[in-house]
Amino acid sequence: MTRISARLASTGAAVVLALTAVSGAAVADTPATAPAAGQAVITTDVNFLSAAALKGIVVIPLQPANPTFDPNAGLTVTLPVSGGAANIPAFYGDVQFGGGLLFLNLSTGRSVTFKQFDFSVANGYFTAVPNGSTTPVPLLDPAGDNVINRNGLTQNLNSSSFQVDAEGATYLDAKLGTTFFTAGQQVGSLALSYTPAH
């Protein structure tokens, strides 16, 4: 990664963190009421962040999603589990998440907000509902090596690769007026922890 791209990535991250602080009140998700617990931690590659920043694209987590940034690891976004009924080791059910992601294209001034994140365990992809729509869009796919285990009631999924879904790429490009997003684009990695209601 070049020094310029690193700087842009840092700038983008700073924008992300700054905007997150002010965006929560306006766009906070519906409070979770389900007794299920856990989180999805998306660790975003610095390479993805810098490439996005060079195109003027930033991704802003919306509360209760929680961002952190490390210059080496990149941006980490934690989406809290808000509900669901899933058996991840048996590959069935769904897990729902609170929070959202705002995708913003600083070059075109266009944006799209995704909320109501849902992980379809059978299909193996995350969908989310964009603002102005009620139809979920397949957005992100766990890819690469998936490792699943149980620790008591808690089910864990670690995926070495987290990628942009083909439909998500098409949708994002159209909404943001860009050609940046592509099917299978490497975003980072995923660590999902889910404890069903009990």
Binding site: F91, A122, N123, G124, A143, N146, I148, N149
Partner: peptide
């Protein structure tokens, strides 16, 4: 058959 996500995924205790 399992989905492309599930097929080949690793589970352990």
């Amino acid at each position: 058959p399992l989905s492309s996500f599930a097929c080949g995924s690793v589970t352990h205790s």
